[in-house]
Amino acid sequence: MRDAIYFQEELRRRFPAAHSRLCAEIDEQYRAIAPDVAFARLSSNPMDRRLDFCSYFLATILILERHGESPETIRDTCLAVTRAFVQPRNSWQRWLRQLPAKLMGTPVVALMARVMQAKTGRKGHEDGFLVQVVTSPAETHGLGYGFDILECGIVKLFRKHGAGQYVTVLCEVDELTSALAGLELVRGGTLARGASRCDFRFRHLPPKR
Score class of each variant (00 low, 15 high):
169 V>Q: 15
136 S>G: 00
99 L>P: 01
109 V>D: 10
123 K>F: 13
65 E>H: 05
125 H>S: 11
85 F>C: 00
205 L>R: 12
122 R>K: 13
120 T>W: 09
95 W>R: 14
181 A>M: 13
192 A>C: 14
83 R>V: 01
9 E>N: 03
54 C>H: 09
164 G>T: 10
115 V>C: 06
54 C>A: 12
132 Q>G: 00
143 L>I: 09
62 L>R: 08
174 D>L: 07
175 E>P: 05
44 S>K: 14
203 R>E: 14
193 R>T: 12
143 L>C: 11
162 G>C: 13
149 I>C: 11
9 E>K: 06
67 H>R: 15
16 P>Y: 01
157 L>N: 12
134 V>P: 00
205 L>Y: 06
138 A>M: 00
150 L>I: 06
85 F>D: 02
46 P>K: 14
189 G>H: 11
84 A>W: 01
182 G>K: 13
17 A>Y: 03
90 N>Y: 12
117 Q>T: 05
117 Q>F: 06
12 R>F: 00
131 V>P: 00
54 C>P: 02
144 G>T: 03
143 L>E: 08
169 V>A: 03
46 P>N: 10
187 R>A: 13
162 G>I: 10
33 I>P: 03
20 S>D: 12
134 V>C: 00
80 A>F: 01
144 G>F: 03
26 I>D: 03
188 G>I: 11
160 K>F: 07
